[in-house]
Every structure is written in C-alpha cells, then in structure tokens.
C-alpha cells in the first residue's frame, strides 16, 4: 500500500459503492464530459450547473458525518453561512489588495472549522446522547439566523462592510486569481465547482478507506468498543465534525462567488434540512450516491420552481418520507443493491 499505486488501491477500497474497471471508466468519462462541457454549453447552463455543483461538498461532508460517523447534524447550513459571511467581510474589506479573495477563502474556511471544533468540543466531550446533536444543531441554526437577521443597522459593520441584516450582505466580490475572475456565469467558476466536486469526492473516498476512516466507522458501529481499543472517540468525532463543517464552508465560499450575495436564510430552518434530505435520499453510506442525489435534487427543485412551484416542498417531504420507509439505506444505494443481486442471479 505504498506509493502512487497504494493510493489507487485505497481509493478503490471497500467503503463506497462503485469498484472495478467499469466504474472507473464511467467515472473518467463523466469527469471528462463535465470538464469539456463549456465547449458547447451556453452561459446559462454553465451558471445553472455550477449552482448545482456548489452544494456537493456540503452534501459530501454530511455523508461523511452521518453515514460514516453516525452523527446526524442539521448544522451544515450554519457552517455554509458562516463561511459565506466571513469571506464577504474579508474580501470586501481588502478589495483593493491583490489576492484578497484568496485570503478571504482561507479565512472563511478556517473560521468555519474553528467554530465547528468549538461547538463539537462542547457536544462531544460532554458525551451527550445521539438525538441531542440534531436538536442542538437546529438550535445553532436558529441562533445564527436570528442573530444575523437583526444586524441591519449602520452599527453592525466590520471594517467598512455592512452585515446587512435580514436583507443580507451585498456586493461580495467573486474569487479572483490574477486576471481570472470566478463570477456567477463564468466558465472559470463552473470548472472550479467541477474540480471541487471531483476532488472532494476522491479525497473523501481516500479518507474513508484509510485507517482513520475505519476508526470513524468503528465509532459509528460501537462507541464503547472503539474507546476500549484505545482511541480517543471524542477527538475523533470533533475532527470529523470539523472536517464536514470545512466542506460546508467550501460550498459557502463557492456560493457567494457565484451569487455575490448571502443572507441569513441561507442558514435557516429550510436550508438546514436540505443537506439531510440529499444525504438520506441518495444513501448516507455512499459518497457517490450522495454526490448524485445532491445534483439531482437541486435540479429537481429548480425545475419544480419553473412549473408548479407550490408542490416543491410537498414533493421533497414525500420523497424523504418514502425513502425512510421503503429505502432506509437511500434510493441510489438500494437500486445498486437490487442491480447487483439481479446480476448475481443471472448466469
């Protein structure tokens, strides 16, 4: 397992669906197709697809946390929002300095990870029972949303940037590297989101198939036993929690670069539940399933908006309930199981 070959065998390890040559060939074709898409896609489709892909790191983070780590969190949206706001504050304040936006990205993700680690310290070192974490992360979302919503006045500003209250923070610059600007309808941003999605997926796949990943799964399956084996369970959980938050933070930064705007409802109740829906519907035990379902459900919500928007929430709720009742492992994962069983039975 040493050297580049070792990495390959690890990425292809047991802790996810999709193994063998056929899967990797298909993966490579899709990846190439996504990278080549700007050659023939219109600006609008690129902007739209980028908007779907922006959320994939956040979904992957929850997949790691819930599916592999056994910790359900409604806090992903909070971290998404914190990151977006921090980026906005830093990048706007330093807008005249070259490279300010990269500094903003670093500060945003760092801030997110620190907040998550602090919150995780309180929760995981207190060894609260599993159901408290989703409730407390919901409470965290509510604190942050309520707090940000009332920061409308002139007194709420950092440097010369107004926090903007309920209306949100406007005029956030897109990420800029040299002459390349990653704006909402640009090819550059589209490619950046594709890369973030692919690297996020491959990186996490590598992680869950590493020693660390196996311990994380061990904590999920039996906390006491893992503790007996000499692992610091609480530290492990805080690490995974912070990592998931960092991924949500990455999504947050990409989102503000796409929309140049963020507001408190991006961390509100509905925003907080979306990652949970993506993860549950796709199948929380598989990174590729969550990647697919995040993009598919964002696309579904978008097309529902265009026709018959009244039914969007209803359909999301029905989808979630039906998944939990009939495909508790998730739709993509269950379909994969069915397919494999069918293939095994065929001669």
């Amino acid at each position: 397992m040493r050297g580049p070959l070792g990495i390959f065998s690890r990425v292809g390890g047991r802790q996810d669906l999709g193994r063998g040559a056929a899967f990797w060939v298909a993966f490579a074709i899709v990846a190439l197709g996504l990278v080549a898409f700007p050659l023939f896609g219109s600006a609008f489709y690129l902007s739209n697809l980028a908007n779907f892909f922006v959320y994939v790191p956040m979904g992957l983070g929850l997949c790691l946390l819930w599916g592999y780590g056994g910790i359900l969190s409604f806090g992903q949206a909070s971290f998404f929002g914190i990151s977006g706001y921090v980026y906005g504050i830093v990048a706007q304040n330093l807008s005249l300095t070259p490279g300010a936006s990269l500094l903003g990205v670093a500060a945003a993700i760092l801030a997110t990870v620190i907040v998550a680690a602090l919150f995780g310290y309180f929760v995981f070192y207190g060894q609260v029972s599993a159901w408290i974490i989703p409730l407390l992360t919901l409470v965290l979302s509510l604190i942050l949303e309520t707090f940000m919503a009332q920061t409308a006045g002139y007194q709420w500003r950092i440097g010369h940037v107004l926090l903007g209250g309920y209306n949100g923070m406007t005029g956030i610059p897109s990420i800029q590297v040299g002459p390349l600007e990653f704006g909402g309808a640009s090819i550059a941003l589209y490619l950046l989101t594709v890369i973030a999605m692919l690297l996020g997926y491959l990186g996490l796949r590598l992680l869950v198939n590493s020693h660390f990943g196996y311990v994380v799964v061990g904590v999920r399956d039996d906390v006491e036993r893992t503790r007996m084996l000499g692992y610091n369970v609480a530290r492990m959980q805080v690490t995974v929690f912070a990592l998931a938050a960092g991924l949500a933070g990455l999504s947050g930064v990409l989102y503000v670069s796409w929309g140049n705007y963020i507001n408190p409802s991006s961390m509100g109740l509905y925003a907080a539940t979306l990652p949970v829906i993506w993860t549950a519907v796709g199948g929380r035990s598989s990174l590729i399933a969550v990647t697919l379902s995040t993009v598919a459900l964002k696309w579904l919500a978008d097309s529902l908006a265009v026709r018959g928007g009244e039914y969007a929430f209803l359909i999301m709720g029905a989808l979630l309930l039906a998944t939990m009742l009939f495909f508790p492992a998730g739709i993509v994962v269950s379909l994969n199981r069915l397919w494999r069983r069918a293939r095994r039975q065929a001669p």
Binding site: W66, L72, A130, W131, P134, T273, V276, A280, E310, Y311, F313, L314, M316, G317, A318, L319, L320, L321, A322, T323, M324, L325, P328
Partner: peptide
C-alpha cells in the same frame, strides 16, 4: 404507519418525522 418502523432507529425517526412535517405544512397550504 410510520413511527412503528423506527423504534430502534432514533435518527431515522427524526428524519422520517421531518418528512411528515414538510408534507403536513405544505399539504395544508395547498
């Protein structure tokens, strides 16, 4: 119909009842 299936799966029950809550509130709106 629903809760019975999640006696041993508290997180599952949380998510399933969240689905119910979306259905009830949006259904009532329509």
């Amino acid at each position: 119909t629903v809760i019975r299936r999640f006696y041993r799966d508290k997180l599952g029950a949380l998510v399933a009842t969240w689905g119910i809550s979306l259905l009830l509130s949006q259904g009532m709106l329509l």
